[in-house]
Design a protein around this nucleic acid. Structure first.
Length: 460
RNA sequence: GGCCCUAUCGUCUAACGGUUAGGACGGAAGCUUCUCAAGCUUUAAAUCCGGGUUCGAUUCCCGGUAGGGUCACCA
């Protein structure tokens, strides 16, 4: 059977249900499906599994579609297929099963046919139970399938009992719908999360009853929260759209996600989507779950930020910081910010934390701070001299390099800390800040001179 | 609890049976134009346990232990 699949064009799919925003774990599943298809010259298809009418929402549908587009994972089917629009197809197949005696309409009495076990499902009470459902007639056989990542997996399906495959002839349950959709879309490889392993045997049972070919399966390791349990909406999972809002670069997110559970076997860590599409190999996918590490993702994003350069930062600078500044001042600002952030949104965060207060208002500080702790000389004279050096620079060439050229020789002659520390404090009012040359360029000649004079006056 | 899956530094991971067990993030230390940031250098840190197989096990097999997943008229 596998022979015949291998000769066909490879088709993978990503079938989220619009019952929540697109989470990182789902995004990685989509990515791996995308990469596997591209690597093998196949297609990557997208469909929405919205058979659950109560929980599916338009809002989530939009989020999922937009998040996927933002990440740049384009699917090859033009029209997005929705299960809710295919009820007639499911109905026809359901009817076939019932007619052939492979499924039956079950009158649900007080005693259901759930397999007996000590485990009590806490969600059993959810929703009203129908008086009549369609159950699959379980042939009670042992199913063995090959998982491309884990090898052979065997289940005895007897414990599944006659499971429900539809709430009514018009309302198929997930297991039925996936099997039919995958067959109709000619899906050759089902690549999904590890939590899908236990669904596989019942889906294979349905496939066999319907006479559909069996796709190849690959179950990806889960993405875990720091406590090593599955990342879920109520447990640490953050939607892709949230990372987008925080100012992550989509390629960086994809890059990080690719490395969660996979690596090419080399020490390379930065890849474009094209490179990933070339290098990806299901055989090199990890078996164990991987803890999501936001720090690592931030550091990957920082690498992308560096490649994007200072110019890319400019559109992300809040207007309060750019207001009243010249083009060159804004460029200097972008350069300064680039060194200090990992994602664009950090600018806003740090601004809110007061990190860039000196860019908005004249600093307020105690005059004692003007003296460097290891100073060997008084700061007042140095500030006066620096001020007059600065005043000689043309406001048109008031750049970091020109300012440094004018002031640095003096600082070297008199003691760098003795000169630079008070200058910097006069400009920023802070013990920790960018260097005084950068600060001057950011503030412009007028403000720089004004702040230096204020400091000199404080020392009178 | 039944069934299924998994097991290398704190985290993500490399090592087609033979390596001083490598890299990255994070940590520590140092260097760099005063402080911060950035950068550079150095450094600490791991093969879950017990049996096999083998001249030799991180690697193969078995058992244990631990962790996870799943047990819906959700997907």
């Amino acid at each position: 059977m596998n022979q015949e699949i291998e000769s066909k064009k490879i088709i993978t799919r990503f079938p989220p249900s619009p019952t929540g925003k697109l989470q990182l774990g789902n995004a990685r599943t989509a990515l791996f499906n995308y990469l596997f298809a591209k690597k093998n010259g196949g297609s990557f298809l997208f469909r929405l599994e919205d058979t659950d009418k109560e929980r599916s929402k338009k809002e989530y549908e939009t989020d999922v579609i937009e998040s996927l587009a933002w990440l740049g994972l384009r699917h090859d089917n033009r029209e997005i297929q929705k299960q809710s629009e295919r009820v007639e197809i499911y109905k026809a197949q359901l009817k076939r099963l019932v007619d052939q005696g492979l499924a039956y309409i079950s009158k649900e009495t007080e005693l259901s046919q759930e397999p007996a076990s000590g485990f009590q499902s806490p969600k059993k009470k959810d929703g009203e139970r129908r008086e009549e459902v369609i159950r699959f007639k379980n042939p009670n056989k042992v199913i063995t399938f090959t998982d491309l990542i884990r090898g052979e997996i065997t289940f005895d399906t007897t414990e599944l009992g006659d499971f429900v495959i539809a709430k009514s002839m018009d309302e198929p349950i997930y297991h039925l719908a996936v099997v039919i959709d995958d067959a109709e879309m000619d899906i050759t490889h089902v690549i999904r999360g590890e939590d899908g392993i236990s669904n596989t045997p019942r889906q294979i049972l349905i496939q066999e009853a319907l006479g559909f070919p069996r796709p190849l399966y690959a179950h990806l390791p889960l993405i875990l929260a720091p406590d090593r349990t599955k990342l879920s909406k109520r447990h640490g999972a953050i939607p892709v759209s949230e990372y987008r809002a925080q100012g992550y670069i989509p390629e960086a997110v994809l890059n990080y996600l690719a490395l969660l559970g996979w690596n090419p076997g080399t020490e390379q860590e930065l890849f474009s989507l094209e490179e990933l599409s070339r290098l990806f190999d299901l055989g090199k996918v990890q078996k164990g779950g991987a803890v999501f590490d936001e720090e690592k993702m931030r550091s990957v994003n920082k690498e992308y930020l560096k490649k994007a350069g200072a110019a890319s930062v400019i559109p992300h600078i809040p207007s309060e910081l750019t207001a009243g500044r010249s083009v060159s001042q804004v460029q200097a600002l972008a350069g300064m910010l680039l060194e200090r952030i990992s994602v664009y949104g950090d600018i806003k965060t740090e601004l809110t934390a007061g990190e860039y207060e000196y860019l908005l208002n004249d600093p307020i500080y105690a005059k004692e701070m003007l003296k460097w702790k290891k100073a060997k000389s008084e700061p007042k004279e140095h500030l006066e001299n620096v001020c007059s050096l600065v005043e000689k620079i043309s406001p048109d060439t008031f750049t970091v390099s020109d300012i440094k050229e004018a002031v640095f020789p003096y600082a070297e002659a008199k003691g760098k800390g003795d000169v630079l520390w008070p200058t910097r404090v006069a400009l920023s009012g802070k013990e920790q800040s960018p260097d005084p040359f950068t600060l001057s360029a950011l503030l412009g000649k007028e403000a720089t001179v004004k702040r230096l004079r204020t400091a000199i006056n404080m020392l009178e």
